[in-house]
Amino acid sequence: MSPETTVTFHTPSTLDEAFALLKEHGDDARVIAGGTALVVMMKQSLVVVDHLVSLASIPGLVGIDVREGAVHIGALTRHRDVETSPIVREHLPFLSDVYGRVATVRIRNSATVGGGLAHADPSQDPPAALMVLDARVRLVSPRGEREVAVAEMFRDYYETVLRSDELIAEVIVPIPSATARTAYLKFLPRNEDDYATVAVAALAEVANGTVQKLRVTLIAAGPTPVRAEAVEAALEGQSPTAEAIRAAADLVADAVDPMDDFRGAPDYKRDMAVVFTRRALERVLLAQG
């Protein structure tokens, strides 16, 4: 299916040029990064604009480096490059793995880190990992820049807190303590190349038999990625027994609000959220058998 033929494809070479184009065309322009989601939406006339502003020619938006205890990932970095980056593998192997769980190699070759976050599809894998890692995005606009926690950036289905003139410049991911344990459980009962029925990311630090820090995030469980704060609170400062974990996991049922789709009815997904939260907690909290 071919979409509109009158679209102008702009390739600004600086952020300022990009800002100017976006300002000039307003609602009639969209930013395009990898395009994996946007092109489909435009083909199906779900998005109709006359101007596309590509960020691909702007230097400085691609790349991965380590500074001040955090890994900085440029917004135009491809999923596949996060997955295979030696830097990410060394400092954030968990993040490599989760980026490696997105769709297929072919999609990961095109989809960008910033594009994925801005798209705000609640079924995408990376936000789950980024949220438990306390990652934040650096946003730039003609007015300056600001940082927002990934956990705070999603508002609703396909909606973020980004203002209309803001772009994601990079994602900043703090390197967790060496003792932190992580797990990502993606429930794919139908097909390996499917969106998750539900998925859970967890990160825990346990010292002296007590949970020092716990992060639990679910995707495909509501209009936005869900941070299960009640579960975290129930276990932080506690001794992580199997019973305590089970009781804490049950609390996730009230935190999620899954939608009815081909991957399951809401009540089934809610039950599965509990099961997979418990299993993720067991992975990060119980001694490995």
Partner: peptide, 27 residues
């Protein structure tokens, strides 16, 4: 499929496989 799922349209861009059905020629 037209939506980047099936792979029939796979081509290589600088050696990396992409779905040409959801890649704009301009890209």
């Amino acid at each position: 499929c037209g939506v980047g799922v099936c792979g029939a349209c796979t081509v290589l861009l600088d050696g990396r496989m992409v779905a040409s059905c959801i890649t704009l020629a301009a890209q």
